[in-house]
Amino acid sequence: MNSLDIASITSIPSAQHDFDQADLTFSATEWDTYRPEQGKPISYKEQHLIVYPLKELSRAFSVAGIPRSQQQLIKWETDGVLPPTPFTFGRKRFYTENQIRTIVDIALECGLRPRTHVKKTNFSELAHHELTYILKLELNAYEAPVI
C-alpha cells in the first residue's frame, strides 16, 4: 500500500469538499435587472449623454429595497451627503445611468436599510469618491487624445 492508497481511504477534510457542497445558484433580483426609464439625451461639454430625472434615482432606491423619496435625495444633495450633480437644468436634477447604479450600489454596500440613517454609515465618503471618478470617466471618455 502506498501513500496514494492511504489518501484515498482516509477522509481528509478540504475546502474543495465544502465548495462542492455549496449551492452556487444565482438568482437575479429586481435590482439586478433594473434599467432606468425616461432618459433625456443631452449635450454636456460637447459630450452626448443620456440623463434621467431625480425621480428615476428615487425609483432605483425603491427597486433595490431601500426606498428614499425625491425630497430625501434633494436633502442629501443640499446637506452634502451626495455630491451635487452637474446635470441640473433649471431646478431639475438629472443623473446618468452609471451615477444611479453607483449611488444605489454604494447604499446597499454600506448597509443602508429603510430605517437606517445615512450618517451612521460611510455612504457619503464613498459616494463622493466614486461619483467623482465616474464623472471623470464619462466626461473624458469621448475626448480626443492629445498628440
Score class of each variant (00 low, 15 high):
Thr96Trp: 04
Thr96Phe: 01
Thr96Asp: 01
Glu97Asn: 09
Asn98Gln: 15
Asn98Glu: 15
Asn98Arg: 15
Asn98Pro: 10
Asn98Ala: 15
Asn98Gly: 15
Gln99Met: 15
Gln99Thr: 08
Gln99Asn: 10
Ile100Gln: 03
Ile100Asn: 01
Ile100His: 04
Ile100Tyr: 04
Ile100Pro: 03
Ile100Lys: 02
Arg101His: 14
Arg101Asn: 10
Arg101Lys: 14
Thr102Gln: 13
Thr102Ile: 05
Thr102Cys: 15
Ile103Gln: 02
Ile103Asp: 01
Ile103Asn: 01
Ile103Leu: 00
Val104Gly: 05
Val104Trp: 07
Val104Pro: 06
Val104His: 03
Asp105Thr: 09
Asp105Arg: 10
Asp105Phe: 03
Asp105Ala: 08
Asp105Val: 00
Asp105Lys: 09
Ile106Trp: 04
Ile106Asp: 05
Ile106Lys: 05
Ala107Lys: 03
Ala107Glu: 02
Ala107Thr: 02
Ala107Leu: 04
Ala107Gly: 08
Ala107Arg: 00
Ala107Gln: 03
Ala107Tyr: 00
Leu108Met: 13
Leu108Gln: 08
Leu108His: 04
Glu109Ala: 13
Glu109Ile: 11
Glu109Arg: 12
Glu109Asp: 14
Glu109Met: 12
Cys110Ile: 05
Cys110Asp: 13
Cys110Ser: 15
Cys110Tyr: 05
Cys110Pro: 07
Gly111Pro: 09
Gly111Gln: 04
Gly111His: 07
Gly111Asn: 09
Leu112Phe: 11
Leu112Asp: 08
Leu112Val: 13
Leu112Ile: 15
Leu112Trp: 09
Leu112Tyr: 08
Arg113Ser: 14
Arg113Leu: 13
Pro114Phe: 03
Pro114Lys: 05
Pro114Ala: 02
Arg115Lys: 13
Arg115Gln: 12
Arg115Trp: 09
Thr116Pro: 01
Thr116Gly: 03
His117Thr: 10
His117Lys: 11
His117Ser: 11
His117Leu: 11
His117Glu: 10
Val118Glu: 08
Val118Arg: 05
Val118Ser: 06
Val118Cys: 00
Lys119His: 14
Lys119Phe: 11
Lys119Asn: 13
Lys119Arg: 14
Lys120Met: 12
Lys120Glu: 12
Lys120Ser: 12
Thr121Asp: 05
Thr121His: 05
Thr121Ile: 04
Thr121Leu: 12
Thr121Glu: 07
Thr121Ala: 02
Asn122Ser: 11
Asn122Trp: 07
Asn122Thr: 12
Asn122Gln: 11
Asn122Gly: 09
Asn122Asp: 13
Phe123Asp: 04
Phe123Asn: 04
Phe123Lys: 06
Phe123Ala: 03
Phe123Ser: 06
Phe123Trp: 04
Phe123Arg: 02
Ser124Ile: 05
Ser124Phe: 00
Ser124Tyr: 01
Ser124Lys: 02
Glu125Ala: 14
Glu125Pro: 00
Glu125Gly: 13
Glu125Asp: 13
Glu125Trp: 08
Glu125Asn: 12
Leu126Arg: 11
Leu126Met: 10
Leu126Gln: 11
Leu126His: 06
Leu126Lys: 13
Ala127Cys: 03
Ala127Phe: 00
Ala127Leu: 00
His128Glu: 07
His128Ala: 02
His129Thr: 15
His129Phe: 15
His129Asp: 14
His129Arg: 15
His129Gln: 15
Glu130Pro: 00
Glu130Gly: 01
Glu130Leu: 09
Glu130His: 11
Leu131Thr: 10
Leu131Asp: 08
Leu131Trp: 07
Leu131Arg: 08
Thr132Met: 06
Thr132Leu: 08
Thr132Cys: 05
Thr132Pro: 01
Thr132Arg: 09
